[in-house]
Design a protein around this nucleic acid. Structure first.
Length: 820
RNA sequence: GGCUAGAUGGCGGAACGGUAAACGCAGUGGACUCAAAAUCCACCGUCCUUAUGGGCUUGUGAGUUCGAAUCUCACUCUGGCUACCA
């Protein structure tokens, strides 16, 4: 009988489901291990990226379970979001129907892969028993001033017809639909993530189980810079202008102050200066792209002057497009001699250059800015100081007059969580003419998202037009009032689902503190690099904030280890419908079986690298599993159901037996080492070596004295392979005669004794150059090695009659002879 | 521009500072077969050589070391993130 994966896989999947084989054990004394893969957006079908992501997680979950851990390995659905709305309009259905039917389809597809999820922990975010808790979080956050409402220019995606958070805009393009972003003034709800900027930054140093690339991306996004705020008095007015600089040591080089058109003082000045007003309007109307283009930078003088805080010199005040209107004090000091941008601006408008910092060896060119630190020059009493020293001296000099202070700035902005969309969590807030903004009463939660609404063909959210939803009464004064019709950003759902997994059926609390303290933090999180800033930053922030409003105790960082897996490509390009290079997972299962697809995804590339799908490559993985199966057919008459790694060198009488025994144990050794690093590809490679050896010596293995060695090796092979290809290994395990599941077996440890050799092949180097090998007894001494090498004859032409100067010996491995 | 990851056969990729190229794909030859597929066996970096045996080889150039794909410096190229953040 040959290997028939479809039959085997369906049979065992049913068995495992009936036996509830992979549920978290509720009252276990075992140590816990929490394996988390990013939950899925129910787009309609599982794609190869999912298959790979979940295969990586499943191997770890199964390995840890076999190692004796109580493993939490949950799955769920990130079920709110815009595509559901668009699809519903297109297919004349409702987002709820569309989403729930996609979930059903995708769940069936996932189950065919035999992933060992605890389906009792399943979470679906578009259901009220999930999103109601977000409404409660919102109300608590509001009480703690972690949520607030503000009017400001927002990123508006005209295609999606909603605002987006800063993290969701890449290169001025919408993260979801690739449309260019516009700026629009709107009043929106924000989460005060900036309150946690410092903790989010500091903790990155402790997250040693994360990739450095992800941590650095988050550091850059948070963008901390330490500097000074310096106040310049405006000549002839009461006003002062504060600027932010990290280079207060260049203060004597200032040629102008430059304000962003957003600067509040301009709103006052432009009242009496129509020219200025016109210029400001023109600058504010520029798109983000035009504003960010250095070639298009321009400015005008306001005609006003500021006074230098030390020299009292008159400094012209300009406005320009290059000053960022949402950062720092929206004003900078322009020091052309020591900053590239200021230099370019000064060249364009003929502002004076003053070199006040010089390198120790003197300046070689006055036609470009000198941006490094150095020694102060023409800077009053500070001349001659080093930059570092001068920064402190100038700051403390000005601090005494209240003209400067040390400050810290972050690039991180508060998180805009309002979305002008239908398919999301309703924001539990009511606008009352008498009481203003009033949060919904907690006992009224959940505020249900109405599901019996027809979708609008113009793509707008139906909620503002739905009187039964909008019209309500004020929870405080009971007067007629209006409900908020924006919904929450769907990134809120993914910011706490890993906490809900700990006990998703708790109807009394959002987060089951007892379950969370037993199961959190997540020991290994696995997902795509595209979430390095967005989701991973929000989830860290949310966990901290939930602590501070009382929903959590003590867990401030949710993810101990983070693996960002590479993309699945086809012919070097990301799989996409438009390119037509999609490989359908279910078709691959029909053709090869789930075990083969899983194995191929894990074998071809290390998890963190991109993985290029190849149709001939998967044939190789399929061939390998057929070989594993055929080994059973070959040896079935002599295989007995024994424990893995029960062989030892003592029972081996021949060289081949010893070699086989050593291989068995060295594979186990490598297996554990590579598993610890999540190096699945090399683990599989070494298992393949064992299979190759069981074929190579088949004539010997058929002999009686090999039977117990074979049974041990084959059991080891199956057990090691079980996390990767759970179905075929379970099938063969039972065929050998075992009656319990292979997935309850312990993965064996290797036996140091079994790795012992009597002789080693030694690499022989002469003057550091590889010249051949020789066979030497184990643990030979330097003298013995040299005697062997001299006697062997193979090296005489190199040794000739030269004298040995020095010998380096790496025991049982290498000898390097240095001649004079 | 800044930060970051990387560069090893025809390809995907292995190599605690110690025999570079494990494992797999593709390829070549052979066995089995009426034939093909499947399977099994052997070969498979490159140059010189009949073989034996040598020389060369981990993006480029230097350095440290008895010994470097691995460490250090400089450079070239490629990917990712970010981008007038003062």
């Amino acid at each position: 009988m040959s290997y028939n994966p479809q039959v085997i896989e369906e049979y065992w999947q049913t068995q495992w489901e009936e036996q509830k084989a992979f549920l978290l054990e509720p009252h276990s004394t075992k140590e816990k291990y929490y394996v988390l893969e990013m939950f899925a957006y129910p787009s309609g079908n599982i794609h190869m990226g999912h298959v790979r992501n979940y295969a990586i997680g499943d191997v770890l979950a199964r390995y840890k379970r076999m190692q004796g851990y109580n493993v939490l390995h949950p799955f769920g659905w990130d079920a709110f979001g815009l595509p559901a709305e668009n699809a519903a309009i297109k297919h004349h259905t409702h987002p709820f129907e569309w989403t729930m039917s996609n979930i059903a389809t995708m769940k069936q597809q996932l189950k065919r892969f035999g992933y060992s999820y605890d389906w009792d922990k399943e979470v679906t975010t578009c259901l009220p028993d999930y999103y109601k808790w977000e409404q409660l979080f919102f109300i608590r956050f509001l009480e703690h001033d972690l949520v607030y409402r503000r009017n400001a220019l927002q990123n508006w995606c005209p295609e999606c017809q909603t605002v987006l958070a800063n993290e969701q805009v890449k290169n001025n393009i919408c993260w979801r639909c690739d449309s260019p972003i516009q700026q629009k003034e709107l009043t929106q709800w924000f989460m005060r993530i900036t309150r946690y900027a410092e903790e989010l930054l500091q903790n990155l140093d402790t997250l040693t189980g994360w990739g450095d690339n992800v941590r650095e991306m988050q550091r850059n996004w948070i963008g901390k810079s330490v500097g000074s705020e310096v106040n310049f008095d405006v000549e002839g007015e009461e006003n002062t202008i504060a600027i932010f600089t990290t280079r207060i040591d260049t203060l004597f080089g200032v040629s102008a102050l430059v304000l962003a058109p957003e600067h509040p003082l301009l709103r006052e000045w432009e009242k009496e200066n129509t020219e200025l007003h016109k210029e400001c309007q023109a600058m504010l109307a520029l798109s983000q792209e035009e504003r960010g283009n250095p070639q298009a930078t321009y400015g005008i003088s306001t005609g006003k002057y500021a006074l230098h805080p030390i020299t009292n010199e008159r400094i012209p005040i300009w406005i320009s497009t290059f000053v960022v209107g949402t950062y720092g004090t929206r004003a900078v000091m322009c020091v052309p001699a020591h900053d590239e941008r200021d230099f370019a601006f000064a060249m364009k408008y003929d502002l004076p250059l003053r070199y006040v910092i010089l390198p120790p060896q003197g300046l070689d060119s006055f036609s470009k800015p000198y941006i490094d630190e150095g020694i102060l020059h023409e800077s009053g009493t500070f001349s001659g100081m080093q930059s570092q020293e001068a920064k402190e001296a100038i700051l403390s000099f000005l601090e005494n007059d209240g003209k400067a202070k040390k400050t810290v700035q972050y690039k991180l902005r508060d998180w805009n969580i309002s979305r002008q969309r239908y398919w999301g969590t309703p924001i539990p807030v009511i606008y009352c003419e008498h009481c203003g903004i009033v949060p919904e009463k907690e006992e009224n939660l959940p505020i249900l998202l109405p599901t019996d609404v027809p979708m609008r063909s113009d793509g707008k959210s139906p909620l503002p037009y739905l009187d039964s939803f909008v019209q309500t009464t004020c929870p405080r004064c009971h007067a007629p009032a209006r409900r908020e019709t924006d919904t929450l950003d769907t990134f809120i759902e993914s910011s706490w689902y890993f906490l809900r997994y700990c006990n998703p059926h708790n109807t009394k609390e959002a987060i089951d503190k007892q379950a969370v303290s037993a199961l959190m933090p997540v020991d290994q999180y696995i997902g795509g690099i595209e979430h390095a800033v967005m989701h991973l930053l929000y989830a860290r922030f949310f966990t901290m904030a939930l602590n501070d409003v009382g929903f959590l105790d003590g867990i401030r960082e949710p993810f101990v280890n983070m693996l960002t897996q590479g993309m699945v490509l086809k012919d070097g390009a990301k799989m996409s419908k438009s390119k037509g290079n999609i490989v359908e997972p279910s078709i691959m299962i029909d053709k090869y079986g789930a075990d083969t697809v899983r194995l191929f995804c894990l074998f071809t590339a290390p998890p963190e690298k991109d993985f290029d799908w190849s149709d001939s490559g998967i044939e190789g993985s399929s061939r390998f599993l057929h070989r594993v199966y055929a080994l059973y057919e070959l040896y079935k008459d002599i295989l007995s159901p024994c424990a893995p790694a029960s062989s030892s060198l003592d029972m081996c009488t021949t060289a081949i037996a010893k070699e086989l025994c050593r291989k068995e144990h060295s594979v186990i050794k490598k297996y554990h080492e590579d598993m610890a690093r999540l190096q699945y590809n090399t683990t599989i490679a070494s298992i393949m070596e064992l299979v190759n050896m069981l074929y190579k010596y088949k004539d010997d293995i058929m002999q009686k004295e090999y039977h117990s060695l074979l049974s041990s090796s084959y059991a080891t092979l199956l057990v090691l392979l079980a996390p990767y290809t759970p179905h075929i290994t379970e099938e063969l395990w039972h065929r050998i005669g075992h009656t319990t599941s292979i997935h309850n077996e312990a993965i064996p440890q290797y036996n140091e004794e079994a790795l012992r050799r009597d002789e080693y092949t030694i690499a022989v180097q002469i003057n550091g150059k590889m010249r051949g090998t020789c066979l030497a007894p184990a643990d030979s001494t330097q003298e013995e090695y040299i005697a062997l090498i001299q006697e062997s004859g193979a090296f005489t032409k190199y040794l000739a009659d030269k004298e040995i100067q020095k010998v380096i010996v790496v025991p049982n491995k290498l000898v390097n002879i240095i001649l004079s």
